[in-house]
Amino acid sequence: MKKKKVIGISIVVIALIIGCVCFNMFSQSKTDKGIAYLQAQEKLKVEDIQEELNKKKQAELQSAVEQGNLDVFSLVDDFVFYGDSRVMGYYVYNLLDANRIFAGSGNTLYNVSDWDEQLRSLNPSNVFISYGVNDMGSDLDNDYEGGYEGLAKVQMNHILEIVPNASIYLCSIIPCSPEVTKEKPYWAKYEDYNSKLQKACNAVEACTYVDVTGLADGGNANIYSGDGIHFSPSFYTDWLTAIVNKMD
Rank of each mutant, 00 (worst) to 15 (best):
C171G: 12
I9R: 10
Y209H: 09
K56Y: 12
L197Q: 04
M25E: 11
A152D: 04
S167W: 03
Q28I: 05
V244N: 05
Y169A: 00
N134E: 14
N142T: 08
V92A: 02
F26G: 06
V154M: 10
K199Q: 11
D192Q: 15
N157E: 09
S105L: 02
F26L: 15
C201E: 02
E60P: 01
D141H: 15
K189M: 14
L38S: 03
K2A: 10
A200E: 02
G89C: 03
L95Q: 15
V163K: 00
D71A: 01
E183A: 15
M1W: 06
D211H: 13
F235M: 02
L70W: 04
N111P: 03
A103W: 01
Q198R: 13
L44K: 15
I129D: 01
L140S: 10
D143V: 13
S113L: 08
L70I: 10
K56N: 11
A36D: 15
S172T: 08
D141Y: 14
L119M: 11
E183N: 05
Q118A: 08
S172A: 13
D71V: 01
I223Y: 02
Y37C: 06
I35H: 04
G89A: 04
E145V: 06
N126H: 12
G228W: 05
I9G: 03
D143W: 14
Y131L: 06
F73T: 04
T241I: 07
S63Y: 09
D48V: 10
G228R: 08
E191A: 14
I168P: 00
Q67D: 11
G214L: 07
N69M: 12
K33D: 05
L170R: 12
S105P: 04
D32N: 13
E47M: 10
N220K: 11
A188I: 10
V244R: 02
G150H: 05
I168T: 00
I223C: 10
Y169Q: 03
C176W: 04
E161I: 02
S167A: 11
K57A: 07
K3V: 12
I9N: 11
K182M: 03
Q67R: 03
W187R: 15
V92E: 08
D116L: 01
G34M: 13
L96T: 03
D114A: 05
